[in-house]
Design a protein around this nucleic acid. Structure first.
Lengths: 345, 345
DNA sequence: CACGTCTATTGACTCGAGTAGATCGTGCTG
DNA sequence: CAGCACGATCTACTCGAGTCAATAGACGTG
């Protein structure tokens, strides 16, 4: 409660290049060359003097000035629909880490699922001279076009569609889903439903196609679909609908771990059991999938690799490099919810 | 795969104040005055002309230049130990939103529980001229002192200790915990254990004190403590230890929702039931607490309010305003895990 | 010894925006 | 009508760092 009297910030004088130059007895240009391994060489002895002056004064180059001069801020922006959704949190974590390794900082913005807010964030990013942007939801073409015009490299993350004119990175949705559904079938299931999230854009989700393909392979042409939002709440509601259906499907593929967790809750609430009454496979492979009950069998996206590829696509890109799609293979993680191992995790 | 040929970014000429000035037939100063509601007045007719020129050219002031001149970037930095921990994600979400409402952007950095990384991030923030920093873990005094010296307002979030020389914002840990433990007692429990996270600093956590106080009030002077890391994994391990103890306590207070979720899994795995075999109350009140099974009774921190207070502490602060602690009351959320309502949520 | 070569260093301009101080009218007052 | 006040506008300098063209030495060579 009582603030200590004296610790108020002594407004230490700001140290600039000039101060360093004076102390080292050189011109400001040399300081710049030393700091940047600059475009010109500096004699070793001089360099050493400058280094010492820098250390002695605690000089730190002003990033704003640098950004102004170079037109690049060494900042990447990332827009997520909702950071409290653990899947996006894990994406953000991976991107931040990959960015930091390259000396970039990350501006994070949460669009709360609103296109308006997302646009506002993007314009803000542009004004702040970010060098690149990660998007996790689908903006309309014109918006992306503006980003490009302003010289901001853009990468779509977790994106299923091929899209011209912009880099897109995402998991291999269709094939992985097909394998997951086939795995459910290998436990003897035939009536396998789908709980599918609603995408903001109108692009059909490829997971749906994968599920269809698997059913077809089994000779089952019919299958129920439950549509809901891409979060726990949505999964919970889908679960309640699912349980009301007769005859009830014996297994279900769910388009995200978050939804699956909501679904599980609905099943538990009804006093039924997973996997005995309903077998479940989900998509994403986030941490919570391991710590819910029963542990979720899920399709693991290689989040880290995708984030690294994304950062590379932004930083390592040539000025007019054509955009491209990168699709990453996923791994089936088999836990209890599908009917696998009853003893270990 | 095939990139469309023509959409390569046409490197649109950068529009500056000067272009606007020329088009509107005024000097650059006037443009600045209009944009900022500047320190001087502009005649309504002129202002209108400038506005039109801005719109026509699509002019957007360069944030880097502005930051350089004003020494303020309109950016807030936030360092979290791990953004994929949903509690920190929800904090980040709240901070970002509160910041955006004030026109600030948020740089997010993940320290991966490492002091070294955290320091690196902070120096980076300083170089980038952030106007303020949110910290969720405990740095040593000298680091914070440097932030102050550099003129960066600092706010400690989720912080239990009073600390001089820095703003600290946190929930009312002790009293809320006491109430939670007493609630467990109201279900008839007497042997109530504590699962407590390990704090990086050496400050004792006030939740522990609250738990002790409650036991004392019940006439129970003894109580078992299980210490583990502040995450699901830690809670899971603590749960296994807990279950191995005889006689087994009938209830437990757990220092975070994440740990509680791990704990629940250990209980489920052992084929036991919550709340019948063990009643559980946790701390945080994050979303996952609602969607696990059984739904967690927990102490809800007013995250949004705390974030807003934090942003206010940074933005609204006078130059030499003394630092202060702000403690927020929490709310008991009673769900199933403690033994409350067996039917609705 | 004069000249060219090469390297280390410097001075000066630039990026784009904020703003103090000078300037230009206009209209009012004595 | 001179003098003054005041509002609108402009000129010019500044923030801190990057970098090019110019300069100053140092060295070697004919």
């Amino acid at each position: 409660m009582v603030a200590m009297p004296d610790l108020s910030a002594s407004p230490r004088p700001v140290i600039t290049r000039k101060d360093v130059a004076r102390l080292a007895g050189v011109s400001t240009a040399v300081v710049s060359y030393v700091v940047n391994g600059g475009p010109k060489n500096v004699a070793p002895a001089t360099e050493e003097r400058v280094r010492q002056a820098i250390a002695a004064l605690g000089y730190r180059p002003n990033a704003a000035a640098r950004a102004l001069k170079k037109g690049s801020s060494q900042i990447l922006g990332m827009v997520v629909p909702k950071i409290s959704n653990p899947f996006f949190a894990s994406l953000a974590e991976a991107v931040e880490q990959a960015a930091e390794e390259q000396g970039f900082a990350m501006l994070l913005a949460d669009s709360r699922d609103s296109l308006t807010v997302e646009r506002r964030h993007l314009r803000n990013f542009i004004d702040r001279q970010v060098d690149g942007v990660f998007l996790c939801s689908v903006l309309v073409q014109p918006d992306i076009q503006e980003l490009r015009e302003r010289g901001v490299r853009t990468v779509l993350l977790n994106f299923s569609e091929e899209s011209p004119s912009v880099d897109a990175i995402g998991p291999e949705f269709a094939e992985s889903t097909r394998r997951a559904v086939e795995h459910l079938a290998s436990h003897g299931h035939r009536d396998i439903a789908l709980v599918m999230g609603l995408t903001t854009g109108n692009a059909p989700d490829r997971r749906e196609g994968g599920w269809r393909a698997a059913l077809q392979g089994l000779g089952e042409s019919e299958g129920r679909i439950f549509r809901c939002t891409f979060d726990r709440q949505g999964g919970y509601e889908a679960g309640k609908q699912f349980l009301a259906v007769t005859p009830r499907p014996t297994a279900v593929f769910i388009s995200s771990d978050q939804q699956a967790i909501g679904f599980l809750r609905a099943v538990q609430e009804a006093g039924l059991s997973v996997p005995d009454d309903v077998a479940v496979m989900a998509f994403d492979g986030s941490d919570e999938a391991e710590y819910c009950w029963p542990p979720l069998s899920t399709v693991r996206q290689p989040v880290k690799e995708m984030a690294e590829a994304g950062v590379r696509a932004i930083i390592g890109a040539e000025r007019d490099e054509p955009s491209r799609n990168q699709v990453f293979d996923c791994e089936l993680i088999l836990r209890r919810s599908c009917g696998c191992h009853a003893e270990d995790s």
